[in-house]
Amino acid sequence: MVYEENTTDAVEMRHIISIILENEAGALSRVAGLFSARAYNIESLTVAPTDDPSLSRMTLVTSGTDEVVEQVCKQLNKLIDVVKLVNLTDDVHVERELILIKVQAENEQRDEVKRIVDIFHGQVIDMTDTTYIIEVTGDSEKIDAVLKALEHMTMLEVERSGQLGMCRGDKGMV
């Protein structure tokens, strides 16, 4: 049987994938190149060395039908630099993203921004006479909500870190 497109089992879902890979020159471009070469979606990607400096951890958010995401995972696993891969979506997990926003804040806006920041348990981490830089962490829904709350104000810069994710429970990834 072939894959049926446009049916209900072919819905595109968001997946968050955690990857441990060799911390080597070129490893990142192998992953990124795979996504462009095979026309897979990539929504966000973060990468940095782990406590073991020879390894990096990458968190990748992609979307696609189950079949496509299964292929994505298989192709990623095939990369020689990939040590371990877990599709966090299959498990109970936590997700965090950090956002920095430089927002115009003058006169009464200054209090309003402060109030919004408090509601989202964020912080003001820098200020000038006319602006604040605020920092908020949370899952992507919360980050989206912050942006929505500030929509009517003038945001001079917005920077999101991309998702980090980790499975709940007592097991480590490697």
Partner: peptide, 26 residues
Amino acid sequence: NLEKFCPGAKIIHVDVDPASISKNVK
């Protein structure tokens, strides 16, 4: 045409590469 491929068949697939399996055909 994949839509018309082996319409009545159950498929066994042996391959050394897991990524080859269920790539085009379930």
